[in-house]
C-alpha cells in the first residue's frame, strides 16, 4: 500500500474516529456513570496514573443506574412515547399534504417542472429557525390565522394553537414538507405514463388507475419520505421549544434541558443512548428501503 493512498484514507477516517466515534463512546461511558457535584459533574473519572487498579475501579463503578432511573421516572418514558406519537402523527399529515403536491409536480409540463422543483427546494436553503419562527405570528392568539377566522365569522373567540401540540404538528409539517415531496416526486416522475394508459385501456377509471397503479408504484418514494420526516422529527428540539407549550413533551427538549438546566450529564447521556436505540429500528428499515430501491434500479 503506497503512502498517498494511506494518507487519503487515513485523514477523513481519523477525523471521524476522533470527532464522531470517540464522542459516542464517551456518551455511553457517562451514561453509565453517576451524577456528582464536581467538575466534570460525574464520577468515576478514569485515572490512568493509578495503572491497572485505576482501570478496574473505573469499570467497577459503572452501572445501569441511570437507565433504571429513566424507566422509573414517568417523565422520561412519557416523553419518549409522546415524541413517537408526535413524530408519527406529523409524518402522516406531511404525507397527506405532500403527496398531492408531488403528484401535481409530476404531472406539470416540462417547462414548469424545474421552477416547481426550485420552489420546493428554496425553503430548504432558508434558515430552519426562521421558518419555524414565522409561524408564531400566524398561530398566536392575536395571530393572522385567528384574525382571519374571526373575520370570516367561523369562530368568535380566538383559538389557542400556539404552545400546543397542534402548533408542533404545523411546524414539523411545514419544515419537513420538502423531504416528503422530493422522494415521492422522483418516484412519480419515473413512472411510465403508458402504464396508466394501459390500465385505462384495460378498463380502469382514472381513480382506479391511480389506486391500482400510481399509488403502489410510488410506494418506495412514500416510504423514503416518511422516514426522512419521521427520523429527524423524533429527536426534534427547535420546533417544540419555539412552537410547543410547557405540556409538549419531546425527548430532544428533555435532553437539552436535562443537560443545560439541571446539569445532570449522566442522565442526559442515558436519555441520548435510549433515543439512539429507538432510532436504530427506523434507520435500519430506511436503509433497507433504499437498498431495495438501488437494486430495483439496476
Amino acid at each position: 500500500m503506497n503512502l498517498r493512498r494511506l494518507v487519503l484514507i487515513a485523514t477523513p477516517y481519523l477525523w471521524l474516529v476522533v470527532f464522531f466515534l470517540v464522542p459516542f463512546v464517551i456518551v455511553f461511558k457517562i451514561a453509565l456513570s453517576d451524577y456528582a457535584i464536581s467538575i466534570p459533574p460525574y464520577t468515576p473519572t478514569l485515572d490512568l496514573s493509578a495503572g491497572w487498579e485505576g482501570i478496574k475501579s473505573f469499570f467497577g463503578a459503572l452501572d445501569f443506574e441511570n437507565f433504571t432511573f429513566l424507566a422509573s421516572d414517568a417523565l422520561y418514558w412519557k416523553a419518549y412515547l409522546s415524541s413517537l406519537q408526535i413524530a408519527a402523527i406529523s409524518t402522516v399529515i406531511t404525507l397527506l399534504v405532500g403527496y398531492p403536491i408531488a403528484y401535481g409536480m409530476a404531472q406539470a409540463s416540462d417547462e414548469w417542472r424545474p421552477t416547481l422543483m426550485m420552489l420546493v427546494i428554496l425553503p430548504f436553503w432558508t434558515s430552519f429557525l426562521i421558518r419555524v419562527y414565522s409561524w408564531i405570528g400566524i398561530l398566536s392568539n392575536e395571530g393572522f390565522l385567528n384574525q382571519f377566522l374571526l373575520w370570516l365569522g367561523i369562530i368568535d373567540t380566538p383559538l389557542t394553537i400556539l404552545n400546543t401540540n397542534a402548533a408542533v404538528y404545523v411546524g414539523i409539517v411545514y419544515t419537513y414538507l420538502p423531504f416528503m415531496v422530493l422522494p415521492i416526486y422522483s418516484a412519480l416522475e419515473k413512472l411510465d405514463g403508458s402504464l396508466i394508459e394501459a390500465a385505462e385501456d384495460l378498463g380502469c377509471s382514472r381513480a382506479q388507475a391511480f389506486w391500482l397503479i400510481t399509488l403502489p408504484l410510488s410506494k418506495p418514494g412514500v416510504i423514503a419520505g416518511c422516514f426522512l420526516v419521521f427520523i429527524p422529527a423524533l429527536g426534534e428540539f427547535v420546533i417544540p421549544s419555539i412552537l410547543g407549550g410547557s405540556s409538549t413533551l419531546m425527548i430532544g427538549k428533555v435532553l437539552f434541558e436535562e443537560f443545560f438546566s439541571n446539569r445532570d450529564w449522566p442522565v442526559a447521556s442515558a436519555v441520548a443512548v435510549v433515543l439512539l436505540l429507538i432510532l436504530i429500528v427506523p434507520i435500519i428499515l430506511f436503509q433497507r428501503n433504499e437498498q431495495k430501491q438501488r437494486e430495483a434500479n439496476q
Partner: peptide
C-alpha cells in the same frame, strides 16, 4: 367513449407491464 369503456385494447410499445 372514454378509453376504459372501449371495446379496443392496446399493446404498448414499452409493453407497459405493471411491474408490481
Amino acid at each position: 367513449i372514454p378509453p376504459n369503456k372501449r371495446a379496443t385494447n392496446m399493446m404498448f410499445q414499452s409493453y407497459a407491464l405493471f411491474p408490481h
